[in-house]
């Protein structure tokens, strides 16, 4: 058994663990700059996580094992996705374990348990968050699936590694097709919704009636909260990584090309910095939507994704 692939696997997971809070710090910094505020350190998210890890856990008396188990499950599953998605290099040992459908399934299982944890304590807020999350997911998940289906039709594979390889081999023109344009458009909308960013949800707010993801975490504290927060940072990082792998795979190292890894890392940093700027641009220029406007937003995403798939079937 060769050890090198497993080391690379580990490196990729470490990049995810370390990079996710850093990326959030980067987003906050850009946001501060855009809004003319003085920004905290780039490493502020780390400090917050550290603080939470050092605190005791206060558990509501009604909480069951599901409430305590969920943070570990969500964190573990997010890490597993990180081991499958080609962030740096393709054909990692875990990449055959699951294709894009299974990755969507993994996100779904994390969401399923988060929603259950929200209902566990038995307060109005938790249930509200769960209900809204499932509502958003029930529209966003099919749109997400259709998007990746469209892309996988081009590369005749649902395996992310294979998609990256086909696209890279075919050159930049491979992604200049109508189905890709629709898919990219839909994917951006879904990514915004799934990672809880403006205009669907606002990660910074604690206003009771507008928050969605936060409501399910309200009763968490200490290390549980830290794990959930960290996992949601990684989720943002992973969504961007999936988008990056599917729509702009250039720079991701091919299998066995060790020398390409530093270059891949360089591309990774550049891409994330640019995407961070774009994301903040959107977030500052848009206002958060009313809850029932988000269904129109997501319905549009689903429609665009379907159009993408139809255009593949008809035009290509």
């Amino acid at each position: 058994m060769k050890i090198l692939p497993y080391i690379l696997e580990l490196v990729q997971v470490l990049i995810l663990l370390v990079g996710a809070p850093l990326f959030v710090g980067w987003i906050r910094r850009i946001k501060c700059w855009l809004q003319g505020r003085k920004s905290p350190s780039l490493f502020q998210p780390y400090f917050e996580l550290l603080k939470l890890f050092s605190k005791d856990v206060y558990l509501a008396e009604n909480a069951s094992w599901i409430f305590r188990f969920t943070p570990y499950l969500v964190f573990g599953i997010t890490l597993l996705i990180g081991a499958i998605v080609p962030i740096l290099i393709i054909d990692l040992p875990f990449s055959t374990t699951a294709d894009v459908i299974a990755i969507v399934g993994l996100f779904a299982i994390a969401r399923f348990f988060t929603a259950l944890a929200g209902m566990d304590v038995g307060t109005a807020f938790g249930g509200m968050g769960s209900s809204r999350t499932m509502m958003i997911a029930s529209l966003a998940e099919p749109a997400m699936l259709i998007t990746v289906f469209t892309v996988s039709l081009t590369s005749h594979s649902t395996s992310l590694s294979q998609i990256v390889q086909t696209l890279t081999n075919n050159g930049i023109l491979a992604t200049l097709r109508p189905s890709f344009v629709f898919s990219l458009w839909a994917f951006l909308m879904i990514a915004v919704a799934e990672t809880g960013r403006v205009p669907v949800d606002n990660p910074d707010t604690h206003l009771e009636l507008t928050m969605i993801h936060e409501t399910m975490l309200l009763e968490y504290s200490g290390r549980h909260l830290a794990l959930m927060e960290w996992a949601s940072m990684m989720k943002l990082f992973l969504f961007i990584s999936i988008g990056k792998a599917v729509f702009m795979p250039w720079g991701i190292a091919q299998s066995g090309q060790l020398l390409a890894i530093p270059l891949a890392l360089f591309f990774l940093i550049i891409k994330f910095m640019v995407i961070g700027v774009i994301l903040v641009g959107f977030e500052t220029s848009l206002a958060k939507m009313r809850l029932f406007r988000t269904t129109e937003f997501l319905g549009a995403a689903l429609l665009i994704a379907t159009l993408g798939m139809l255009s593949y079937f008809i035009l290509e």
């Binding site: 779904a108 769960s130 499932m134 997911a137 029930s138 529209l139 259709i146």
Partner: peptide, 19 residues
């Protein structure tokens, strides 16, 4: 494609149902 969309919608709604 429409079939695939509806199946995907179904599985997402099933998750909501069982939550």
């Amino acid at each position: 494609p429409i079939g695939a969309v509806l199946l995907a919608l179904t599985s997402a709604l099933a998750a909501a149902t069982f939550v």
